[in-house]
Nucleic acid binder design. Structure first.
Lengths: 344, 344
DNA sequence: GCACCGAGGTTTTACGTATAACGTCGAGGG
DNA sequence: CCCTCGACGTTATACGTAAAACCTCGGTGC
């Protein structure tokens, strides 16, 4: 018995298209590549295109990458998928990438638990470059090791390794927060800071300190917490419960911590904003889901992604990447108000 | 002047390793492939491995894919990155994938705005299969067109096209919700439903209807809203404001809508849960960020991802995929309570 | 009449890998 | 002593594409 011929539905190649159109494979490549206008007569070109469409031809990306030595693919390394900020960064990066026929693949840095896998193995595609958040700390070593063009987001411009940087003007954001709160009359501050130790948070702390330093009578305490609601609540609850020098303004490193802080306040019977003003950072959807809605700093996440991709493309083309921080904007909502009364 | 030789840092190939180790390229492949134990003597193998490590050799994935005709890469199509549920699906899928030396690449279906780009072009890698959420509606056509193994998540098992299905026992979840609320004494329900028209939401509506149908005196109204906090608030506010037959229980299709509903209640002066019980679906982080915390249905998102990847691997291996819905679990928190008083 | 040219193809090659097919050599059995 | 065989490598090839290099041929300038 003759073994049945497997009807394996293998995808058509450029050679199949060539055969169908009665031309050579090279001609197909010439036509579909669209890089050599006038190289092939329009009638032949049209015939090739028709046959390609009929057969449902799609170029084999692996073969193309192998030939071209590049993949037109960038890896975006983010600290966590859940993070809405980075979802918007991705959107911006993908938009710019698409304009240049690039793709963007995500690598969510694993969250502590489990072994930190190799971002490149995971991405599966050979990559042309990497855009990485400084918050994805565990993946950073591997990134510097690989000799790929690297763009760092929101990280210390003086950091190690050669890399382009795209930064937000975080310090200015914190200044806007303090200006707002000081203007309302607040003098006693609690800083609910991130326990994650990265540049972007260090800048917040420094800016806050510098803003309050020259203000007579101003006080500042700091507590740190991991970046989730529960941890934020616990840290804030503990800090606020200690009666000594109760602050009137609680400045949080991001909206998630602020959400935790609001819960803490409620549990302690402190009304926001009457007895405690709370501010966040990021302007996530969460900020308007809370009651009262959160006064926070809006970060242009999509612009970060756009600039990141632009910087990567610049590096790949051997051009210098654009410098300069991206502006941020305080959004005043219901979680801040003048302090009810000055204390003794 | 002679043009300076470009010191292009081209990555080492298996041939470079071979040269360094004094063997042929084939031997390098044999050693590093680890598929032919005993094929190469241990001393030679060790020498090859040492040189490979020194040179920092990494196999070119494009070449490997071209040779092997597969990429060991799956595409996970999700409706939106921000969605925490799908972030956990990804985690589960990636974990199972890693065990089988597979990678997972994400394609966030663009959110209406902008042209729906081609998921495959975007992914950039040739793909071996696709796992797709039914909520990523705009990408589905392209998926069925491509002749790739397809696993659908939370979609109609009787849907079009050949595909394996991984479903949650949504109907049972909704039954648990209604049992809970009926047990508390509620009889007048408002269903805040998703305006997105997919199987998973249709099942919720149907299960809710079936559960209330046999209950004497039970009433059910339905309003629909897009899946974001603001839309949920607006829809709920409008529905609750109309005085006629005010419900005591508000059943929401997911936690995000529930968050909107809570805001609506607050603005209308209805206290949750005393005057209005609210339930969600998904058990997102948001559920415990709200005050009171949300009674909701916990969905095993990571299991969905795991089963999805397992199903895809099964299909690729020609095995049948495991059937059966995944169990879900009601989590009772502070947003539900007995209705204050029965009405006329 | 012939060298030249451009238009419109074709042939050929290279990308880096995995593996089938093929040596080669020393040991061992008859 | 010859044949076989296993152990250990090597050579050759194919994957699908892009593009450089190369043909072919009719028209053109002189």
């Amino acid at each position: 018995m003759i073994s049945a011929q497997q009807p394996v539905p293998t995808r058509p190649t450029s050679r199949d298209v060539a055969r169908a159109a009665g031309v050579s494979q090279a001609t197909v490549s010439l036509v579909l590549g669209e890089k050599w206008p006038g190289r092939v007569s329009e009638t032949t070109a049209q015939r090739v295109r028709d046959r390609a469409a009929e057969l449902g031809y799609r170029p084999n990306l692996a073969a193309r990458s192998l030939r071209l030595g590049g993949t037109r693919t960038a890896l975006l390394v983010v600290p966590a998928l859940t993070n809405e900020f980075f979802a918007r960064v991705y959107t911006g990066a993908a938009a710019v990438a698409a304009e240049h026929d690039f793709g963007v693949v995500l690598y969510p840095s694993p969250d502590g638990t489990g072994p930190a896998r190799d971002p490149f193995a995971s991405a599966r595609a050979s990559l042309d470059g990497v855009i990485a958040s400084s918050m994805a700390a565990d993946a950073l070593d591997a990134l510097h090791g690989a000799e790929l063009p690297l763009v760092m987001l929101d990280s210390d411009p003086a950091g190690p390794g050669p890399a382009a940087h795209v930064n937000l003007d975080i310090a200015d954001g914190m200044r806007q927060v303090t200006d707002h709160l000081l203007g309302l009359g607040h003098r006693h501050f609690l800083h609910l800071a991130s326990a994650v130790d990265t540049w972007t948070f260090a800048v917040r702390a420094e800016a806050l300190r510098q803003a309050l330093d020259p203000v007579p009578g101003a006080t500042l305490r700091t507590v740190r917490a991991p970046l989730d609601v529960r941890a934020g609540r616990e840290a804030a609850e503990q800090a606020l419960a200690s009666a000594d020098g109760r602050p009137t303004a609680l400045v949080c490193d991001d909206d998630v911590l602020a959400a935790g802080a609001c819960k803490a306040a409620r549990r302690l019977g402190l009304r926001v904003p009457q007895e405690l003003s709370v501010t966040g950072f990021d302007d996530l959807a969460l900020a308007t889901a809370l009651e009262p809605e959160l006064t926070t700093v809006r970060l242009p996440a999509d612009r970060v992604g756009e600039r990141g991709m632009e910087a990567l493309l610049a590096v790949l083309a051997g051009r210098p990447a654009e410098q300069g921080g991206l502006p941020v904007q305080l959004v005043v909502r219901g979680s801040t108000a003048p302090p009810r009364a000055t204390r003794s």
